[in-house]
Amino acid sequence: MDTNAIRTIGRQELMINVRNRWTLVFAAVFGVLVLSISYFGMITGGSLGFQGFARTSASLLNMVLYIVPLVALVMGTLSFTSETSAGELLFAQPVTRGEILIGKFLGVFASIFTATVIGFGLAGVIIAAKAGPEGSLRYPTLVAYSLLLALIFLSLSALISAICRRKTKALGVALFAWFFFVLFYDLLVIGGTFLFKERTANSLIFGSLFGNPVDMVRVASLMTLNGKEIFGAGGAALLRFLGGETSSLIVLLIALSVWVIAPLIAAQQLLKRQDI
């Protein structure tokens, strides 16, 4: 691994992404949404003034679950399927394809990170004004989970790009992947539970969580932000299924790491065997 190459490629990728409209558009959209959610959540405080930080962060999470995967998929796909001639020139340099992949990955992540942090930073100012001590851990947790989600979908976009090669096709597949993970997957599982006996259905639901990073992040974040009891008996059964709170967290973090690393490795293996 040539870290100089990775760093150089990453920095250029960040520079390109900051200069093309994507990062700024994302930062603006994200910032406006985050700001308005936290403003209406924290300042106006809901209809009767009971709106606490937990609910605001849950609304934020919901928005994050839609937007972050989409942005990561689109920005990632655009970057990983760069124009052929530019790609040829880069791949002809004395760097390995793995280094190029990781460099681009980190570069795009840095630009998503930047945009996300601008949005969360601005909203954080509003939230901090009223969040009290409970915001100290919860808000950074939300930001961390968002970034983890970005990593995962960036990794998926690398795999999609490696499979599809062509920009338009890859973008189409990326959009489908977004739709699938955000909506379709859950509908399938919910529908599926009615086809099986109770016991099978339960393991299907719990097992299915690991097949969808969006679900994992949603469940983990809601448990952290709103308290682990938010899913009622289902949540208690899930924690037992995973062997308690600490082991659940460990299992979750391992599963999420696998979701970051596995598509990236798969993409690298594909790329290694491909003609540019």
Partner: peptide
Amino acid sequence: RAARQQMSFVPQRVSFSEQ
């Protein structure tokens, strides 16, 4: 890496990031 270190390449159609 060493082999490619010895070479420079000019593709048929050169393009760079417009930014």
